[in-house]
Amino acid sequence: MSLFSKENRETFFSPIWMNNPVTMQVLGICSALAVTVKLEPALVMGLSVTIIVAVANLVVSLLRNTIPNRIRIIVQLVVVAALVTIVSEVLKAFAYDVSVQLSVYVGLIITNCILMGRLEAFAMANGPWESFLDGLGNGFGYAAILVVVAFVRELFSAGTLLGFKVIPDCVYELGYMNNGLMLMPPMALVLLGCIIWFQRAKNPELND
């Protein structure tokens, strides 16, 4: 079987939009609410989750035939926790400012449902390469939603993107104001709802 066969491409691309872990499977909502106030932490968070879910999928898939059935969740959790700790330590050593910004959320990747969901549903039953692609696809799918939500929230709550001012002062002089509601977690949920609405309106076959 070739590395980029139709099935493998499907494994990689489907979670990015048609079977997105956040909008279709409604996983990882908690962190999607927490780290999307600003674009930069959302990007780093998306990247961290992508790396961790891809590598964890790969490791668990390699081990899948040796893992005792009764402690498989614990084994998966240990793999994820070890990876998260390593990523967090590496960020502290080489990207100190970003790690300060993300504070507790890096550690909380352990509790991200996407990870356990993919490990249990996919990596335990598929080969290493497919699992790695599945992890990348789901990570990117998660990151994409985070970035879209963070883009809207930062733009309307602070008038900036990645910390750079994009709404010029003359607009404010005309009476435009930043929307403080965008800072609140519920607005992330409302935006997420809008994305799901858009996705389902575009693809009627997704509706039950």
């Binding site: 035939n65 040796t66 893992i67 005792p68 059935n69 009764r70 402690i71 614990i74 084994v75 240990v78 070890a82 700790t85 390593i86 330590e89 590496v90 502290k92 050593a93």
Partner: peptide
């Protein structure tokens, strides 16, 4: 892979490996 002995040995070996790995990463950084 479902016997008690296997499960206990598997868990112990895994924990030791992970502990060494994390200790190594932590001390080198």
């Amino acid at each position: 892979t479902n016997s008690n002995t296997y499960t206990i040995v598997y868990a112990s070996v895994m924990v030791v490996i992970v502990a060494f790995l994390l200790a190594f990463v932590s001390s080198s950084l």
